Amino acid sequence: MINNAAEAYKRQQIMTATPEALTLMLYNGCLKFMNEGKDAIEAKQWEQANTCLQKAQNIISEFRITLNMEYEISKQLMPLYNYTYDRLVEGNIKSDTKMVQEAIDIIKELRDAWVQAMKKARQENGTKNVQGDSYVG
């Protein structure tokens, strides 16, 4: 019963979140899966590592697909996403935690920049309560 309530709450958060908050949720989910994948590699749990890192790869693929290339920032983000994706794939294949950590560092930096951009936009728009404020470090 508690699990159903938690799932319903999570679903509701996602359904009512702004696009900006959804992007933040995706960054946080990507970091969560990469960290779990790295931990699984260290524990020699290969199947778990593969599953987690593929979930992170799927999120990065979603970021790439949804970039609007009419904007200069998108042209700067695409190579970062491509490089991060490649690090994850190679890190997964070689069970190399250094490669996975490199991907984590890039996504963490992008996530933190996104948080700052959301704060700045809120200040400029005078909006106070945007969902997705908190993030996992």
Results as ranks from 00 to 15, higher is better:
residue 4 N to E: 09
residue 58 N to Q: 11
residue 116 Q to P: 01
residue 78 M to Y: 09
residue 88 L to E: 04
residue 62 E to K: 08
residue 99 M to W: 00
residue 94 K to L: 10
residue 30 C to V: 03
residue 13 Q to R: 13
residue 93 I to F: 03
residue 134 S to E: 14
residue 106 I to M: 13
residue 1 M to S: 14
residue 24 L to K: 10
residue 25 M to T: 00
residue 86 D to G: 03
residue 128 K to W: 06
residue 32 K to V: 03
residue 29 G to C: 02
residue 20 E to R: 10
residue 45 Q to T: 03
residue 42 E to Y: 02
residue 130 V to C: 07
residue 29 G to N: 11
residue 30 C to R: 06
residue 28 N to W: 05
residue 47 E to Y: 08
residue 55 K to V: 01
residue 78 M to W: 01
residue 104 I to M: 06
residue 81 Y to G: 06
residue 117 A to E: 13
residue 83 Y to C: 04
residue 91 G to M: 09
residue 120 K to R: 15
residue 25 M to E: 02
residue 30 C to M: 02
residue 27 Y to I: 12
residue 109 E to M: 12
residue 87 R to E: 06
residue 136 V to A: 09
residue 88 L to G: 05
residue 120 K to T: 15
residue 13 Q to E: 10
residue 47 E to D: 11
residue 19 P to R: 04
residue 26 L to W: 08
residue 1 M to K: 11
residue 107 I to G: 03
residue 132 G to E: 08
residue 98 K to T: 14
residue 99 M to T: 01
residue 57 Q to E: 14
residue 85 Y to V: 06
residue 80 L to G: 04
residue 128 K to Y: 09
residue 104 I to R: 04
residue 136 V to H: 09
residue 2 I to E: 15
residue 59 I to T: 08
residue 76 Q to P: 07
residue 81 Y to P: 04
residue 61 S to I: 12
residue 81 Y to Q: 04
residue 85 Y to E: 13
residue 9 Y to I: 10
residue 2 I to T: 13
residue 107 I to T: 10
residue 121 A to T: 11
residue 92 N to Y: 06
residue 128 K to E: 14
residue 111 R to A: 15
residue 68 N to I: 02
residue 69 M to D: 12
residue 3 N to C: 03
residue 40 A to V: 06
residue 96 D to Y: 01
residue 95 S to I: 00
residue 4 N to C: 00
residue 16 T to Y: 07
residue 17 A to I: 09
residue 21 A to F: 03
residue 6 A to S: 11
residue 123 Q to E: 15
residue 11 R to V: 00
residue 132 G to K: 13
residue 95 S to K: 15
residue 30 C to Q: 04
residue 127 T to C: 01
residue 80 L to S: 07
residue 42 E to A: 15
residue 53 L to Y: 07
residue 12 Q to P: 00
residue 112 D to I: 10
residue 92 N to E: 10
residue 33 F to C: 03
